[in-house]
Write a protein that binds this DNA or RNA. Structure first.
Lengths: 198, 198
DNA sequence: ACAGAAATGGACCCGCCAGTCCAATCCATC
DNA sequence: GATGGATTGGACTGGCGGGTCCATTTCTGT
């Protein structure tokens, strides 16, 4: 899809473009993002953009989506794998809240996942679906570990609990973006914990 | 904001335009929605669109947002006010799931709430924020009724539970839109019930 | 019936922005 | 140091679609 032979310099430029586009999308949203803005931000020309992303705008957005999803998944995996107690859960929760605070209550991915973009770009939607599935798997795995550690009763359906937790997180983020407040996210995670302890 | 004097015919046309735009947005998303599509669908001319919505596209979208939010809020209020037992809750849950199924697993509002649109149109965002607040209030009121009926323990913080429930619902809908599956929504609502019963 | 206002149709304009194209450079390799 | 491919710059195009404008028709009130 992209150029087949990339020199080191080429790879650098390509990477610079992806990161710039990513930042641009985080700030302005996918729809508002203009190729011109990216060119300005990354000090590249239109020729370069289309050299590294022959598919144009769409291919670039897709590249950003892939980049952001693997990034997010790595972070979430690292954070959620590290504990097997409720104290650890609490720390994970607080870290997550702090992370979004640090990002100005924005989310790099939710803009990409919006219904419109998906409709126009089925590939992007596929990326998002896969991402959600992966994230849910990470959550479920973590819950299973908590269960093994005795923090969660054996009769609890961790698969379903993982689905609910993911929904709570996503909804919390969505509400955070619109309302610029983070209490929904907190409440959602806390409620998941409450349900799991019951 | 709109024309001050509307004949009956005028009101009909205006209404027709809003409904048509609403349907168009539901199907294609806000960003994809073209004035031309609405004209075709509602059998109106560009002159009419700008006659009834001098603010153009933006004012029209806003009108749709207002229309959809009051609609949704009425329905939710009616549905959530009608019970004070867990059986009633379950019926409400099933109705909600069925409602979305009937709509082809779409949501008339989530497209409007997407981050981009909000950024570009602060007024639309304000409408969405108010809508979320109202919905949450309806949920909390309902939970309080359940509490009064003895279904929920007295020590439960219904305000926080309402926030969590709203987050779960929104996340469930979001995931429904991307994955075209409804189990996240179900799991989220069920988990809220589980937490409340604890 | 006769103003005057409201409603309608649609041609036209114009800015924006993704995408094209090619000429100019850089650089790896022989 | 020459050759060909990778890289870069940027002028130019094309059309899409929101918004303007005005002529025409229809309605309302007296």
């Amino acid at each position: 899809m992209a150029a087949r032979t990339l020199t080191r310099k080429g790879e650098q430029t390509r990477r610079r473009i992806v990161l710039g586009a990513s930042a641009e999308i985080l700030e302005s949203g996918v729809e508002e993002m203009r190729l011109e803005d990216i060119m300005a931000r990354t000090a590249t020309s239109k020729g370069q953009l289309f050299h590294y992303f022959p598919g144009g705008r769409e291919e670039l957005v897709l590249a950003v989506a892939r980049h952001e999803t693997v990034q997010a998944l790595q972070e979430q995996t690292a954070a959620f794998r590290r504990f097997d107690s409720w104290a650890g859960w609490q720390r994970w929760r607080d870290d997550m809240v702090a992370w979004y605070h640090g990002r100005g209550l924005r989310c790099p991915l939710l803009g990409l996942l919006n219904a419109d973009a998906s409709r126009r770009m089925p590939e992007a939607q596929a990326v998002m679906v896969a991402f959600m599935a992966d994230w849910q798997a990470v959550l479920i795995e973590g819950l299973r570990r908590l269960q093994a550690a005795g923090c969660v009763a054996a009769h609890v359906d961790v698969a379903k609990a993982g689905a609910a937790l993911l929904a709570g997180i996503q909804g919390g983020i969505l509400l955070m973006i619109t309302t610029k407040r983070i209490d929904h996210l907190e409440a959602a995670i806390d409620q998941a914990a409450a349900a799991l302890r019951a």
